[in-house]
């Protein structure tokens, strides 16, 4: 039993053909459009978790604030929060099925853990801020809005890739082997 586990751990199954995985993702998105009438989203759920933590720390300040305040006293009671939880569970299911779940810090062999985590944290803060500003992230604006052919979403996507490529060289070390 132990050896079997060890074997499977060493041999995670390969990822799907990216195009077919993309088609599946597209069908999930289509289902979201048809059933919910709204696309996929992730940053909205995260922001509401942020609002709820902010409520725990300073309830009256949060309720009185202009942005979080309009989400009321129970910001978690929102479909995107549930979608975010679903995303985690769905990915967990897939990762376990393919023996891909493993505790690790993903980084280049030559990069240190703190180095990678510092970048992850900084990137997270920027993205948390940027996706509130743009009213969505890669899922909500890029993918969903793009599939709806919304001008602003496609402008967002173009800007995202443009600045990503412009910045990539400066932060490449975290992936050096």
């Amino acid at each position: 039993m132990t050896t079997e586990m060890g074997n499977t751990r060493r041999n995670p199954k390969p990822y799907w053909n990216p195009y077919l995985a993309g088609v599946l993702l597209g069908l999930v998105l289509l289902a979201s459009f048809v059933i919910l009438g709204a696309g996929l989203g992730a940053s909205g759920g995260i922001a509401r978790i942020g609002a709820s933590l902010s409520m725990c720390v300073a309830a009256s300040h949060t309720l009185g604030s202009e942005y979080f305040g309009k989400w009321g006293a129970k910001p978690l009671n929102y479909y995107l929060v549930f979608m975010f939880v679903g995303t985690f569970v769905g990915a967990l299911f897939s990762a376990l099925l393919a023996n891909r779940a493993r505790i690790q810090v993903e980084r280049g062999a030559a990069a240190s853990v703190p180095h990678r985590l510092a970048y992850a944290l900084a990137g997270g803060v920027i993205i948390g801020f940027a996706s509130r500003l743009a009213q969505g992230c890669t899922s909500g604006q890029g993918l969903s809005g793009g599939a709806l052919l919304l001008t602003g979403s496609l402008v967002f996507l173009v800007c995202l890739f443009a600045s990503g490529y412009a910045t990539a060289w400066f932060v490449r070390r975290q992936w050096h082997d």
């Binding site: 996929l40 989203g41 992730a42 940053s43 759920g45 995260i46 975010f84 995303t87 985690f88 569970v89 769905g90 990915a91 967990l92 897939s94 990762a95 891909r100 779940a101 493993r102 505790i103 690790q104 810090v105 993903e106 980084r107 990678r116 985590l117 970048y119 992850a120 944290l121 900084a122 990137g123 997270g124 803060v125 920027i126 993205i127 801020f129 940027a130 996706s131 500003l133 743009a134 009213q135 992230c137 890669t138 899922s139 604006q141 402008v155 967002f156 996507l157 173009v158 800007c159 995202l160 890739f161 443009a162 600045s163 990503g164 490529y165 412009a166 910045t167 990539a168 932060v171 975290q174």
Partner: peptide, 30 residues
Amino acid sequence: VGGLLFGVGFVMGAWCPGTAAAGLAAGRID
């Protein structure tokens, strides 16, 4: 502005909100 910032965050963090949920599920500490 959001897209430009997002690109910087994406390349630094190497995650976006949706994929990070998947990454967390797969045990990624980052």
